[in-house]
């Protein structure tokens, strides 16, 4: 880090894109470029968001979505790391499953949601399940490729010192793979935020996705946009947290 003081000029440049976008959002409906009924000036939608937050109507939706995201991401992380380590460590298993996983990864959560509903109804299992599905693959595939990419000279070196397999796994392979695991978790995080909308689209009574879709059906368009803004904020904050965690675990990688 070069300067401790805020570099205002740089910050200004960095946020100029957002400012231009918001200004366009503000004036487009006012100048009649878009139908004001469908898209209100940003200030109105933002006020609607404030209104929802202050009145306490936002909180249950936010909490419901956060809970689903949290649970889905937690399960994806546990299962993804576990499976990823196994798949990465055992070359044969990797060869047998690689194509299948590549295939699964391409099956979108949207397409699969009806199947989940079929089996589990409009339950939390379906909702968390779809988030789990969407966010599992980045962690899993990053973990397994991380294990695969461990510099073999590190393993040989530690082995030559007399290390057994357990030591090699926990003291060499796992720490060497952590950076890629956390990169995977960060990617999974953004998939979660996308998937939660899908999960709450149909058959939900709460959640940000529900707020967005229900507001549209009730012609409460400012609330719909408020929900969208809230989702963006959740995504940004989650990403911010996951990037910070990732940085902490990859600091030794910066050469």
């Amino acid at each position: 880090m070069k300067t401790k003081n805020f570099d205002y000029k740089r910050i200004l440049i960095r946020i100029s894109g957002i400012i231009i976008f918001l200004v366009l959002w503000e004036i487009a409906p006012r100048l009649g470029w878009v139908d004001k009924v469908y898209l209100q000036p940003f200030s109105e939608d933002f006020l609607a968001l404030i209104e929802l937050v202050v009145s306490g109507k936002m909180l249950p939706h936010l909490l419901a979505s956060l809970q689903r995201i949290g649970l889905g991401l937690l399960l994806a992380t546990i299962i993804g790391i576990g499976l990823g380590l196994i798949v990465g460590y055992f070359q044969r298993i990797n060869e047998a499953l690689d194509l299948l996983f590549q295939l699964f990864r391409q099956v979108s959560a949207f397409a699969l949601f009806p199947v989940f509903i079929l089996f589990f109804g409009f339950s939390e299992v379906s909702k968390v399940g779809i988030i789990l599905w969407a966010s599992l693959w980045p962690v899993l595939l990053n973990t397994s490729s991380g294990v695969h990419d461990v510099d073999s000279v590190l393993i040989r070196s530690v082995k030559s010192m007399g290390a057994n397999k357990i030591y090699i796994f926990f003291r060499v392979i796992l720490p060497a793979t952590l950076p890629q695991i956390f990169t995977g978790i960060r990617l999974s995080g953004s998939y979660c935020v996308m998937a939660v909308v899908v999960a709450e689209m149909i058959g939900a009574k709460r959640g940000l996705g529900y707020l967005v879709f229900n507001s549209r059906e009730s012609f409460l368009y400012p609330n719909m946009y408020a929900g969208i803004i809230m989702l963006a904020i959740v995504g940004v904050v989650l990403n911010f947290i996951l990037v910070a965690v990732e940085k902490k675990f990859t600091s030794w990688k910066i050469a």
Binding site: V153, L154, R156, L178, W252, K253
Partner: peptide, 9 residues
């Protein structure tokens, strides 16, 4: 080893 093989973390 030629490549040191130190554990970078």
């Amino acid at each position: 080893f030629q490549s040191y093989a130190l554990l970078p973390w």
